[in-house]
Design a protein around this nucleic acid. Structure first.
Lengths: 204, 204
DNA sequence: GTCTATAGACGGATAGAC
DNA sequence: GTCTATCCGTCTATAGAC
């Protein structure tokens, strides 16, 4: 569970690990439901049921449904930092490195569900605009900042189309054979596309 | 309104056009809401309100909410037919032709909302699996059928990632500058990617 | 810490009057 | 054709007992 390392508000003087970690179980059930069904279709009651507790307990630990959603979105990577590492060696090969990094984050089991939850809810519920805009803009801006000026905006947009589509097809819709392809093969097939969007001429 | 040309179940001996086409207004309001907010977040009451009628009338014309959704999904193009036309001249240039065709369909005002509604609801509400699978499989199979054998499945999947991502970024999320780019420029920028997925070697 | 009870809203769908 | 009235279900959230 990724709940521990973040050190958020536990119970006032919380129980030591070893007993049944109810809070963690609730959080895990929430991640699963948000990832599979999105924000709206997820009900507190269902989450509580899956965790084997009462609905009121969910509120007790996490507050409102929005709070629960936010709590279930934590991942173990800072996107800006990861992006900086990708572009540190220069623009050459950045397409492959970018893709490899993103896929390795998504393939990490503890990140998968939070990311899926975020992706699905961003696309499905257009009123998540707060988070959506906040997060996407951070990544987008960060990516744009790594590119040479002039066409940076357009290049970042092109990269976004291919990257977004890959994530949707591979993880959200599970379109075969893309979903089952080993990571290295995806990088070999699609990395060059990203590289072209990053460094090929785009002017008319 | 695309309601006329399809000739579905009107009232038993329906009114001639000229009066306020209530049914059409309801349908238009439904398309807008489904496109903007997805299936779940759309309420019959809100649709009725936007159309200036009572909620019961919506049921009277369209039956259940699912029926209304299905009714709002009609577009003026048969995907299989369009695909066949794209691939008729051969594989050369099929990437650009495919992209141009898809974008021209999406840019048609009367198709835009039905397509958006379908895309948003497919991605957001995973229980639309019936429609989702039906439709996507039709397109996917149709596309695959146009490709030389061997890697057809993989090529179709790769094309899907780029196409899907473009549609999501351009129409659903409206990521700039991709959303505002003229169609021809999008074709020039992304068409070659599709062409490579269609005809470049993919074997290791 | 965990649950019972309940308030308060909202939404889909139907019956039937006009 | 259009609306009023209403039933029934589901959901979030809170107060408070154990």
């Amino acid at each position: 569970m990724t709940a521990r390392p973040t050190g958020r508000q536990q119970g006032p003087r919380g129980r030591r690990p070893g007993g049944p970690d109810t809070r963690g179980q609730i959080l895990e059930a929430a991640r699963e439901s948000f990832a599979d069904k999105g924000f709206r279709a997820t009900t507190i009651r269902a989450v509580a049921g899956a965790a084997g507790v009462d609905a009121a307990l969910v509120h007790h630990y996490f507050g409102t449904k929005d709070d629960l959603f936010v709590a279930s979105l934590e991942i173990s990577v800072d996107p800006r930092q990861a992006l900086a590492l990708v572009f540190a060696p220069g623009l050459d090969g950045a397409g492959e490195r970018l893709l490899g990094t993103v896929l390795s984050v998504w393939d990490e089991p503890e990140n998968r569900r939070p990311l899926l939850a975020f992706l699905r809810s961003s696309l499905g519920d257009p009123e998540s605009t707060l988070l959506q805009d906040a997060f996407i803009r951070v990544i987008f801006k960060s990516l744009r900042g790594q590119l040479p000026d002039g066409d940076a905006e357009l290049r970042a947009g092109l990269v976004a189309t291919q990257m977004l589509g890959l994530l949707v097809a591979r993880y959200l819709l599970a379109v075969e054979p893309v979903a089952s392809l080993p990571r290295e093969q995806v990088v070999a097939l699609i990395g060059p596309t990203l590289q072209r969007y990053l460094s090929d001429p785009v002017a008319p």
